[in-house]
Write a protein that binds this DNA or RNA. Structure first.
Lengths: 118, 118
DNA sequence: ATAATATATTTAAATATGTGGATATATTCC
DNA sequence: GGAATATATCCACATATTTAAATATATTAT
């Protein structure tokens, strides 16, 4: 193998290289890709998806969410924390109670876009 | 603690219970939630998001994708496999070359819905 | 103050996932 | 048939994630 050649890649002709340069200039940079992946990762769990769906109809306190989820309280608290850090939900404290709600209903479009078609 | 009470949940009044029943009857069942989570998990990786973005402009063979990604070939092959299993991409063999393309442009709506707002 | 309640944090174990080297397969060319 | 090339699979390691028990915190009621 001559120097300058990569072991992993193959021979692309002039036109392909030109096409790839055009494409790569249009796609999001690595930072944005990482952020988007992190957002999706926060959604990519059945328990957390269920929480989002529950909150679609208005705010709920943790104990209400708990009764819908059939998971121990620390587990639910952990998932709420992940959704909060990702910016999908917010909370409002009222005495001992903590009421969670969606921060922005835009996520619902993503969820609705998932079911059925792909 | 009396029998019949759950340790993890708290006291909900009649109205709250009624409200929760109404809500839970509307949300997707656990099977669908799991499927949606699996789909999102397949997207929730920066390398795979980049592949989807690259394919937005038309089909590409593996070696073209390779030159855009700066990752060793087995790693890229693995990510392509995950996207294929999840149903986001398809391939077309042409001799030694394998050309990948989007199976449905609906995903692009999800990606475009991510950037910026939340 | 003490007790009871709602929620969060800590921690550890089990499982899943990303990565990449080594190797296999499959197709084309000579 | 043998060499070269494009891609896939196997495997092992490192890291991340889910789960849940134990414990802590914070608020309210007595």
């Amino acid at each position: 193998m001559k120097s300058g050649e990569s072991k992993d890649s193959c021979k692309l002709d002039q036109e392909q290289v030109k096409n790839l340069k055009r494409i790569t200039s249009k796609i999001p940079d690595d930072t944005e890709l990482q952020e988007d992946a992190d957002s999706l990762k926060a959604l990519a769990d059945p328990t957390r998806l269920k929480i989002i769906h529950l909150l679609r109809y208005g705010e709920l306190c943790v104990c209400e969410i708990l009764t819908c989820l059939d998971k121990p309280q620390p587990t639910v608290s952990h998932h709420l924390n992940i959704l909060k850090k990702a910016g999908f939900i917010k909370y409002r404290k009222e005495g001992v109670w903590v009421h969670y709600s969606l921060r922005d209903r835009e996520i619902l479009k993503i969820l609705d876009g998932l079911s059925g078609e792909k």
